[in-house]
Write a protein that binds this DNA or RNA. Structure first.
Length: 260
DNA sequence: ATGACAGTCTGCGACTGA
């Protein structure tokens, strides 16, 4: 089972690239973030024509997450449990497959948190603490679990093109990294680092200042795996193809293959 | 260098993002 994650920065604008990715990469489940549209406006027909169905939590103009899948999603959880005060569309979770083939998947759009001297940073940290608590609950199920999404966290300096310049940014602050490590300390594994030890591998490149052409980016999109998922993971790659296209998202997809 | 991004709608400038 191939599970991918991609912050598309508007699903309407990115629809041609999205259809292209579904056709070429053939994921079984694709987690989307920053869809930026209401559920009623989601381009379901075009996606359905490729044999995929959609579950989404959307809002106007900002945020928005979705699960695009070949099989129907089961036991949907809409919004981050325990964070019912959050009115932003940032979390969607469901099961795919049945019995020994069941995988629980979440599409996560974690708050950015900048500027880090404001309540936006407080909101990010609070949101992360709820995510840690919920992840602990999910891990008790002892099933394959993939927490996929735009975490807006660079786990280490090697995940940043210029760690000194980014040191005080909400994506790199020690408070943000500590909470990301709290997820790992629960027993979750960063799927990309199972297969790749190289520094300077990115999933995001800012639109400004020629960051893409200079390969100056950030690794902020992650697939976190439960022990039962790590036992089955066969590959994890960042697909840079979509980022190179005209009118691209500033993020590019990351995917993993589970032997399920 | 009076610059150099992209998306949305409160819409032709402001807000948000990373």
């Amino acid at each position: 089972m191939k599970i991918a994650s991609w912050n598309v920065n508007s699903v309407k604008v990115r629809l041609p690239h999205l259809l292209d990715f579904l056709t070429t990469a053939q994921p079984d489940v694709l987690c989307l973030q920053e869809t930026k549209c209401l559920a009623d406006d989601f381009p379901r027909l075009e996606i359905a024509s490729l044999g995929y169905q959609v579950e989404t939590l959307g809002q106007r103009a900002y945020n928005g997450v979705a699960l695009v899948s070949r099989e129907p999603a089961r036991d949907l959880v809409v919004g981050l449990p325990g964070a019912e005060w959050d009115d932003q569309s940032r979390y969607l979770e469901a099961s795919f497959g049945a019995g020994d083939h069941e995988v629980r998947v979440a599409s996560i759009y974690l708050p950015n948190g900048n500027p880090s001297a404001t309540d936006k940073f407080t909101y990010k940290l609070a949101w992360m603490e709820h995510l840690v608590a919920h992840a602990a609950t999910l891990l008790e199920r002892e099933i394959p679990l993939v927490l996929a999404g735009d975490y807006n966290i660079c786990p280490a300096d090697e995940d940043v093109y210029d760690p000194v310049a980014w040191r005080d940014d909400a994506l790199c602050r020690i408070e943000s990294r500590a909470r990301f490590r709290a997820l790992l300390n629960l027993g979750l594994t960063d799927a990309y680092r199972v297969f790749h030890r190289e520094s300077h591998r990115y999933t995001f490149w800012d639109y400004q200042a020629g960051r893409w052409n200079r390969d100056e980016g950030l690794r902020i999109d992650h697939l976190l795996l439960s022990p039962q998922a790590v036992d089955r993971v066969a590959a994890c790659e960042i697909d840079k193809t979509p980022r190179a296209k005209e009118r691209a998202s500033d993020h590019t997809p990351i995917w993993c293959e589970l032997a399920i």
